[in-house]
Lab assay of single mutants.
Amino acid sequence: MSDQEAKPSTEDLGDKKEGEYIKLKVIGQDSSEIHFKVKMTTHLKKLKESYCQRQGVPMNSLRFLFEGQRIADNHTPKELGMEEEDVIEVYQEQTGGHSTV
């Protein structure tokens, strides 16, 4: 019986991991920090939209990076291997420009 009891508790931990929340720091170019608590399985588009709304800027005017890689709207913290207190960097999107060649 103890084996049966242990097995469901392991499964519960697996389920808990799926719905687990982590805190992420979003740091802007001006070094301002906003902290977000997100589920591991939530699409990061929600975090990006919330950040842009707080900053009063359109979402397409900023780019969000985690460990140097651009974050897509459909990425989740779990897919990117994010952990508690990880940092997302935000930069002004640069458009235009010309070749110097």
Rank of each mutant, 00 (worst) to 15 (best):
V90T: 13
K39R: 11
Q69S: 12
L47A: 01
K16L: 10
P77F: 03
S61G: 06
E79W: 07
I71T: 04
H75Q: 12
G81M: 00
S31R: 14
I34C: 04
T76Q: 01
K7V: 05
D15Y: 08
Q69G: 08
F64R: 03
K25Q: 07
P8C: 14
D15I: 07
R54L: 09
D30S: 02
D15W: 05
E93T: 15
R54P: 00
K46I: 12
T41D: 00
V38R: 01
I88F: 04
K39A: 03
Q55L: 11
K16Q: 09
G68I: 00
N60S: 11
G19S: 11
L13D: 13
E18K: 13
Y51A: 02
D86C: 12
E20G: 13
G81S: 15
G14L: 14
K39G: 15
G68T: 02
Q94C: 10
T95W: 14
E85S: 11
P77T: 03
D30T: 08
E49F: 07
G56A: 07
P58A: 09
V57D: 03
H35C: 14
H35L: 09
T41I: 09
Q4G: 11
E5Q: 13
Q29V: 02
K46N: 09
Q69T: 14
G96P: 09
S2W: 12
T95V: 15
Y91P: 02
Y21I: 09
E79T: 03
P77Y: 01
T10F: 11
T42D: 06
K16S: 12
G97P: 00
E83Y: 12
E33M: 05
K25D: 00
E33D: 04
F36R: 04
Y51I: 06
K23P: 01
Q94V: 13
D73N: 05
N74F: 13
L44G: 03
A72T: 14
I22P: 07
K25H: 15
I22N: 02
I88Q: 04
Q29P: 12
K46G: 02
D73C: 04
V26S: 15
R70E: 15
K23H: 10
T10I: 13
E11F: 06
D3N: 09
K48F: 01
K37T: 04
V87E: 11
I34F: 15
K45R: 12
F66S: 02
S31F: 15
